[in-house]
Design a protein around this nucleic acid. Structure first.
Lengths: 214, 214
DNA sequence: TAGATTGTTAATCGATTAACAATC
DNA sequence: TAGATTGTTAATCGATTAACAATC
C-alpha cells in the first residue's frame, strides 16, 4: 500500500479524465496507434506537462522515447473511470428530460442500462419509452427492495428531488445523477453528481455580456 | 477606468455566480431580507472569506457590521450575469434533448426565448413543439439572415455539430450552447459553452468506484 | 548509439483562506 | 458607543508549468 491509496485524487484531475477518453476514442477511430504528450496536447488543449502529470496519478502508461499507445491508454482510462462495467439505473421523472436520457443510446452502449422509469403522473401509466417501462412513483421504494440499482437519475422538479434522493439512498443506490435544479445534500455512502443546466446557460450569458473575460 | 476593467474575472469565480443566484432566490422566497457572509457560507458551502472575495470582484455590495441585503444582492448578481435581458435563441435538433429544452419553461421565464427549432428530419416538418415552429434545417442560414438570434442551442449529433456551429457563427449569433458530445472550437466573437452530459455521468462512475476520493 | 519522450522533482502561478483595519 | 461584519491585504494552499535525469 503506497501513497497513491492514501492521497485523494483531486476533483480537477478526475473531471479531465472523460475528456481524455473522448479524445483517445477519436484517435482510435482515426487509427492513430501512438501519441506523445506533446501531440496530444495540441488536440486536447492541455499542456503536455499537465497530461503527463495527470496520467501519472494513475500509473506510468507511457514509454520513454515513444509516447503512449492510444488503445492501451484508452482502455486504461475506461478502467479508471469504471466504464465497461454494467450499471443498473432508473430514471425518476418521465418528462422530456427523462425521455431524452432514456433515448440517448450512447449511455446504454457504455454499460449504463435503464431498468425502469418512474413518474407520479398517471398519464404515463403502462407506457414504455424506448422499451423501458414507466412505473408509478408510488412503487419506487418497493421496487428498490427487489431490484439492485446502482444509479438513480433524478429528472423531477426541485420540490420532489430531495425526497426522491432519500428513497434512493435508503434503497441502496450507489450514486445519484441529479438534474433537478437543487444541490442535493450528499449522504453517507452515496455519491451525488448535480447537473445544473441553467448554471451553464447563465455562465454563457455572463460571457456574452463580458466577452473580455472569455 | 480602473483595474477591474483590465484584469479578467476568473472562470472559477464566474461559475460560482449562478449558485449565488440560486441560493439568494431561495432566501428571497423564505423572506430573508439580510444575510452575513458567515450565514450564507453555511447555506451555500463556500467559506465566508471566499464569498466576500467573490462579491468584491464586482463591487462592494455589503454593509459593514450588517451584511448583505438579499434582494439587492440577488438583483446585482442577475445584472452581472445578464439575466433580465431578453435573449433570442434557436434550437438546432428537435430530438428529445431539444424538446426537453424547449419545454423547460424556466429558461423562458428568465428571458431566454426560443424563437424556432430546426431539424433535418422531415418527420418534424410543420410541427410545433411548445408553440415553437420546427423548420427544415436547410433554411437555417437563410433564417439567420432575417432574424437576429443571440444564442444557438445545438442539440444535434456530434457529426453535424461543427457545421451547424459554423452556420450559426456566420449568422451572427453571440453564443453557442452546445450539447453535442464534441468540444466546438471557439471562433472569434462567439462564446461557446460546451455541456458534456456523458462527462458528468463518467465522473459519477469514477466516484462510485473510488469513494475514498469523494 | 543518438534522439525522443517519459516520469518526476522543483518552480511558478493562481485560487483559497486567514487576519484585521475600517466602519456601519 | 460597542458589537458585528465588511472589504481588502497578507499568508497559505493547491494546481499548473518548467526542467531535466532516466531510459526506451
Amino acid at each position: 500500500m503506497n501513497d497513491k491509496s492514501i492521497i485523494k485524487v483531486s476533483d480537477t484531475v478526475i473531471r479531465r479524465l472523460p475528456k481524455y477518453r473522448r479524445c483517445l476514442e477519436e484517435l482510435l477511430n482515426r487509427k492513430v496507434y501512438q501519441i506523445s504528450s506533446q501531440d496530444l496536447s495540441k488536440i486536447i488543449g492541455f499542456t503536455a506537462s499537465q497530461i503527463r502529470q495527470d496520467l501519472n496519478v494513475f500509473g506510468g502508461f507511457g514509454l520513454k522515447g515513444f509516447g503512449y499507445n492510444v488503445q492501451d491508454l484508452y482502455l486504461q482510462i475506461e478502467e479508471i473511470l469504471g466504464i465497461g462495467s454494467v450499471y443498473n439505473t432508473i430514471i425518476i421523472g418521465a418528462g422530456n428530460l427523462g425521455q431524452a436520457i432514456v433515448n440517448y443510446t450512447n449511455f446504454c452502449r457504455t454499460g449504463f442500462l435503464v431498468k425502469a422509469m418512474f413518474d407520479i403522473n398517471p398519464k404515463f401509466k403502462g407506457l414504455r419509452i424506448n422499451d423501458v417501462k414507466v412505473i408509478d412513483a408510488e412503487f419506487l421504494k418497493e421496487y428498490l427492495e427487489h431490484v439492485s440499482i446502482d444509479i438513480g437519475i433524478i429528472c423531477t422538479n426541485k420540490e420532489s428531488a430531495q425526497e426522491i434522493a432519500k428513497i434512493l439512498t435508503e434503497g441502496g443506490v450507489k450514486g445519484i445523477w441529479n438534474f433537478a435544479p437543487v444541490d442535493l445534500a450528499a449522504k453517507e455512502n452515496v455519491i451525488v453528481e448535480n447537473v445544473h443546466l441553467s448554471d451553464s446557460l447563465y455562465t454563457l450569458a455572463y460571457y456574452i455580456n463580458h466577452p473580455q473575460d472569455y
